[in-house]
Design a protein around this nucleic acid. Structure first.
Lengths: 227, 227
DNA sequence: ATGCTAGCGCAACCGGGTTGCACTATTAAC
DNA sequence: GTTAATAGTGCAACCCGGTTGCGCTAGCAT
């Protein structure tokens, strides 16, 4: 019997609902077990449909995660900008200022999003393959736009050139991915890291370490440019 | 006929020769096509033996690349130290000094090793899986030792604390991997990057960009500590 | 000369991603 | 009201890379 287990998605709205259901399932599984460990079969059984049916919503597995990465960029960018330059209504007169405070915002907002860090670590190497160039173009344009928005926010609170701000954002996201890789490389491997004293700090201290590096970058740029 | 195509490696010396042949083949292929694209079958046919026979020299595919990564760490570390603190006999009275010069050394030595950058990008996420914990321990200990050696060299030429030097090394290797990913993500994808004006600089300008970031990091650390 | 050992190739297996196809529920047309 | 077209789904097969089990044989040792 090839009867569908549940109602078919016929209307555009129903399709959208199913699409978001797939994305949410992928997000939950990837958060729990890491992007790398999540297979199409896992997502499919979590959603309740067959994996071959899922691939008519997303042309490939990588595209699912590329979509999640795009969402991650949007949310992170918004979060950073809200914290650096609170919108008018917000009562925060204490806009974060100074390299250390700004670095702290970047580090905190990133480490608070382990899935986003995971996706950042995977992005060009693993996610941008087996996907149509169109999909890559859309994603890259979005990521670049969001990164530029964060860069503008940095320029607004620190004496940076746009290029320097761009490099700072690249450092933040790049190092977040790189440090995350050491922090969460699978359960048994992570236990190994934790059990090895000289490596334990890498697993535990990601946020302060990232903040420290970003502080140095921002301070190095700012002192050169400031009056 | 299951006759071996070539002489069997019986003596320990012969085994060692074959092992290095495998490593060299993997190195050449990975340099040409990228680590990710190289399969066991590729390496095997390059060496001239069957892939199942190769797996008696290395317990798994990842272990081959983990070995190459270890070699990369050794060579890079040695190169950096030689340039920062030339050994006694070397006539270089001009030991590189100042954040910008040191950053330039780090950036140049890394970008001159695209395969090492590739391996750095893969390391914890992809290479440290499917390998015995013993192999990971050996590799991590070696990488950590070499990184510490580079950190010591940095401390010798710049006013840094050991922790700051360690973060600087982590930034150098982490960002080298992250930037490399964008620069060389497969031929057709790379052409896409090059054809997209707003992305082209990321593909082309890896070395100066990395040098700029590292200069900021070192300057940010140094100015805080210097007299 | 005759076992024994150990390196090798082959073929099978496994698991993940992808594709082709049959099935049916809805909808549209007559 | 019946019938034909459409479209979403499940199943099974396929592909391909990594891994494993097994038989074969070259070379050493007895």
């Amino acid at each position: 019997m090839n009867q569908p287990k549940f109602e078919r998605a016929r209307s555009p709205e129903a399709k959208l609902i199913r699409e978001t259901a797939i994305l949410q399932a992928a997000e939950r599984l990837a958060t729990e077990h890491g992007v790398r460990a999540v297979t199409l079969t896992d997502i499919a059984s979590a959603v309740g449909m067959h994996k071959s049916a899922m691939l008519r919503y997303f042309e490939t597995r990588e595209e699912i995660f590329l979509r999640l990465a795009a969402d991650g960029w949007r949310e992170w960018s918004q979060d950073v900008r809200d914290r650096l330059c609170p919108p008018a209504g917000k009562g925060a007169a204490d806009t974060e200022t100074g390299p250390a405070a700004v670095a702290d915002v970047l580090a905190r907002t990133l480490t608070a999003r382990p899935l986003f860090c995971d996706l950042l670590a995977h992005t060009p190497l693993n996610l941008e393959r087996g996907v149509s160039l169109d999909a890559v173009r859309i994603f890259k344009t979005l990521a670049l736009t969001e990164a530029a928005a964060v860069g503008s926010a940095l320029c607004a609170v620190l004496p940076l050139t746009p290029a320097q701000a761009g490099n700072a954002v690249a450092t933040a996201t790049g190092m977040a991915g790189a440090l995350w890789q050491m922090a969460a490389p699978g359960t048994e491997l992570r236990r190994f890291y934790e059990d090895t004293p000289e490596l334990a700090h890498a697993v535990v201290d990601v946020a302060p370490r990232l903040a420290d590096i970003l502080t140095a970058v921002l301070r190095g740029y700012s002192t050169g440019n400031a009056a």
